[in-house]
Design a protein around this nucleic acid. Structure first.
Length: 423
RNA sequence: GGAGAGGUGGCAGAGUUGGUUGAAUGCGACGGCCUCGAAAGUCGUUGUUUCGUUUUGGCGGAACCAAGGGUUCGAAUCUCUUCCUCUCCGCCA
């Protein structure tokens, strides 16, 4: 979240940013609450100062064996007043805090202003659009012919949107995960984590999924735990309430997790196959960095994610998200979209975002600066590296052959222990 | 699930007849001295948040000893609730 002080001092910028993110948050109300809050603090503090002074005097008198009944009865009234003011203050601060949780992060100056995804800007493309001399199948047909998935049986188990990978399909899924984790940990220098898949309310709030997007999360009421929608949630919270050392930054983590999304409100859209599912697998990268380096680190994060697709030789493009398409917590975001020849579509497989200190403030994740020995919030970044369902789609559709087989790219072969999928 | 112990500053660790305890002591960190330099030694400094004021350096106030209530003129210290950690037992993988 943004600090009230920052909002107070940059109210026009914050309003402009919220507007460009299509947010209807009421900032005037927040400013008013803040003014009210500071008035009460001033009054309560004055009373408390008086109480502290007189309490000392009472202590002194008691030590001297003098009577202090007068002071005590005076202070009883002051104390009542303090209680009243503190009560008022608490109500206002709770209200202010819950309002602040809905203020979106400010956008970086480099973000293209626009209403929705149609205003996103392609900043580069990689590889060639593959060409084929035969009729293409989409991933559903390929998967059926090669017996890679079984959506029908999956729906008996959990309902639609929960994929069941079978046989070599299951192994291919696992191979993709292992390959990506190895790439990021062995080549890109990320520390591997295997995090919990359920998170508590507090941790889920750090990254911004709560309170605004509660509808999209699977929730377990008995324990008030949430199924993670991305490994970003547990991994970002690894340093919650910690003060890191500047020399330890940047900290880079990579983690596999299953991801759970209710996809509320998107019924009927892209419901077939692997395109939009309630549970999927993803390898995520998370970085904790110094504020002055976060945009440089964002570029590097993007490159690390791109290498997954490059090494698999899959055509893709990188898009800079327009303000209106930017997520609530992000200051800037790039999407990577891989080409799926069978569907003739670009599919989003990764979002690489800089949250600046938005999440760090919510999670109280700080570092001690060497230059002045002060503590400050770190910047957090994360990016998918990458999500498997759409990667699987692109892979199958790109490497399909006219006999129905699918060639396996070189880097995956040691993991799958096969170089081709045959019908 | 049952029984017990505990949660204090960057870390370790004092502090229960409530009253100059924001908090001893040690370590760490920073600065000075010493040294060719370093170590050792020695002297000093060293939390966060927030409100007000300001010639922006500061000055003054308030709050913070897991979290939230209660008692009291006054609570790290008494009391209640919750959370978390550890040990033992039981159950399950």
């Amino acid at each position: 979240m943004l600090s009230i002080k920052y909002i107070r001092e940059n109210i026009d910028l914050v309003k402009e940013s919220a507007k460009n993110k299509n947010s209807d948050v009421n900032l005037d109300e927040i400013v008013k609450l803040d003014e009210n809050r500071r008035e009460i603090i001033k009054e309560a503090d004055d009373h408390k100062a008086k109480r502290n002074v007189v309490s000392q005097a009472i202590a002194q008198k008691k030590r001297n064996g003098e009577n202090s009944d007068q002071e005590i009865s005076d202070m009883r009234m002051v104390s009542d007043k303090i209680k009243e003011l503190d009560g008022d203050l608490k109500i206002i601060e709770e209200k202010l805090h819950s309002c602040l949780l809905y203020v979106p992060n400010v956008i970086h100056p480099s973000v293209p202003i626009g209403f929705d995804e149609s205003d996103n800007v392609t900043i580069r493309e990689w590889g060639e659009l593959p060409e084929y001399s035969f009729g293409l199948q989409d991933h559903l047909e390929i998967g059926e012919n090669l017996k890679l998935f079984d959506f029908k049986r999956a729906s008996k188990i959990s309902g639609s949107g929960f994929p069941l990978y079978t046989g070599i399909g299951a192994k291919l899924e696992r191979s993709l995960i292992n390959y990506m984790l190895d790439l990021h940990t062995e080549k890109h220098g990320y520390t591997e984590l295997f995090p919990p898949f359920l998170t508590n309310r507090d941790a889920t709030q750090t990254t911004g999924q709560l309170p605004k997007f509660a509808e999209d999360m699977y929730h377990i009421p008995a324990d008030d735990l949430f199924c993670i929608s991305t490994a970003e949630v547990p991994v970002t919270n690894i340093h919650k309430d910690e003060t890191l050392l500047e020399d330890d930054l940047p900290k880079k983590y990579s983690a596999y997790s299953a991801c759970f999304r209710r996809e509320a409100g998107s019924y009927g859209k892209e419901t077939r196959g692997l395109l939009r599912v309630h549970q999927f697998n993803k390898v995520e990268m998370v970085k904790f960095v110094k504020p002055e380096e976060s945009y440089e680190e964002l570029e590097k994060l993007l490159v690390d994610a791109e290498e997954v697709l490059q090494s698999l030789n899959l055509h893709y493009r990188v898009r800079a998200l327009a303000s209106g398409d930017l997520s609530f917590a992000a200051a800037k975001c790039f999407d990577i979209e891989v080409w799926a020849p069978g569907m003739q579509k670009y599919l989003e497989v990764s979002s690489c975002s800089n949250f600046q200190d938005f999440q760090a403030r919510r999670g109280n994740i700080r570092y001690r600066r060497k230059s002045d020995n002060k503590v400050d919030f770190v910047h957090t970044l994360n990016g998918s590296g990458v999500a498997t369902p759409r990667l699987m789609i692109a892979l199958l559709e790109t490497y399909q052959q006219d006999d129905g087989s699918v060639i396996i790219p070189k880097v995956l072969q040691p993991y799958l222990k096969a170089d081709i999928l045959l019908p």
